[in-house]
């Protein structure tokens, strides 16, 4: 069948295809390097010749606006930078933790990372990046606590990473299934889906393990209820401000007191 096609038919196709490709190319050049730059340049007050040169990339674009540096007093936000060194320190297996530091932590946070008092946070199974960030912030003064600040200030960055890895590797243990939070309760809507009208993202979009949010966000499940509620209130009041770019200060301020109590209870009793 194919062999019965005349050669004139084939050459006609070649010409047709070549002119189609050529036409599209010419049209693209005309639109991209001539029409669009000239028309858009007129709207932006740029003469046609400069606009064409800029579209071709042989004249520079709008000069950057000089990046004026802030003279405002910096708020005490975190000094942690998730650079390669920090990430590498937290990616390895737990190095030798200073034993006296572990003992010091265990006095409040428990040997196994389960806090001795419900107003202190549990550390077992927490993300190492989250523990490291909070220790680092206590050390730099971005977060202040009369017990934690002096402890963190006595340690160096390698100790902080070792301690973070040590407690991250502890097991949370199993939870009594009968105590589990009701996932059909209205507050679960905030946890799982958020509230678009108020601009509150689902809590789980950052705080569920492996959610893909910012690396420093802690895992909240099985955290102590009293501790969680207290931290949300501190964020809402602005007493705690080491959340980078005020993410938690912003979201917490939108929550009602009732929501804060219910959210804390929900996470405390969810695995």
């Amino acid at each position: 069948m194919a062999s019965s096609r005349s050669s004139s038919e084939e050459s006609r196709f070649t010409v047709l295809a070549a002119s189609a490709v050529g036409g599209i190319l010419a049209g693209g050049i005309l639109l991209g390097f001539l029409i669009l730059p000239v028309v858009q340049g007129r709207q932006a007050g740029i003469d046609p010749w400069t606009a064409i040169c800029r579209s071709l990339g042989i004249a520079p674009g709008t000069p950057a606006a000089g990046s004026p540096i802030s003279t405002a007093a910096a708020r005490p936000v975190s000094r942690v930078s998730w650079d390669e060194g920090t990430l590498r320190a937290l990616a390895g297996a737990a190095g030798p933790s200073p034993p006296e530091a572990v003992a010091q932590c265990a006095a409040c946070h428990g040997d196994a990372g389960i806090a001795t008092d419900p107003t202190f946070p549990n550390l077992a199974g927490q993300s190492a990046a989250a523990i490291f960030k909070q220790l680092h912030d206590y050390r730099s003064g971005a977060r202040v606590n009369e017990q934690m600040s002096p402890v963190a200030q006595g340690l160096d960055e390698a100790d902080l990473a070792a301690l973070a890895l040590h407690f991250a590797a502890r097991s949370k243990g199993t939870m009594d299934a009968t105590a589990r939070a009701d996932r059909n309760h209205p507050v679960a809507e905030l946890v799982l889906r958020g509230d678009p009208a108020r601009g509150i993202p689902a809590c789980n979009s950052c705080h569920a393990p492996g959610s893909g949010g910012p690396i420093e966000t802690p895992i909240l499940t099985r955290q102590n209820e009293a501790y969680l509620a207290d931290q949300l209130r501190r964020y809402a009041r602005g007493d705690r401000g080491n959340d980078i770019y005020g993410r938690m200060r912003g979201f917490s301020a939108k929550l009602t007191e009732d929501e804060i109590r219910r959210l804390a209870a929900f996470y405390a009793w969810t695995e």
Binding site: A64, S67, P68, I69, S70, A72, A73, A74, R75, V77, S78, R79, S81, W82, D83, I244, Y245, G246
Partner: peptide
């Protein structure tokens, strides 16, 4: 225009106060 995303919050134009 490039900017270091790792240190965006630490100094310069895109600190929280600015």
């Amino acid at each position: 225009e490039t900017v270091d995303p790792k240190t965006l919050h630490l100094s310069g134009e895109f600190t929280e106060g600015n």
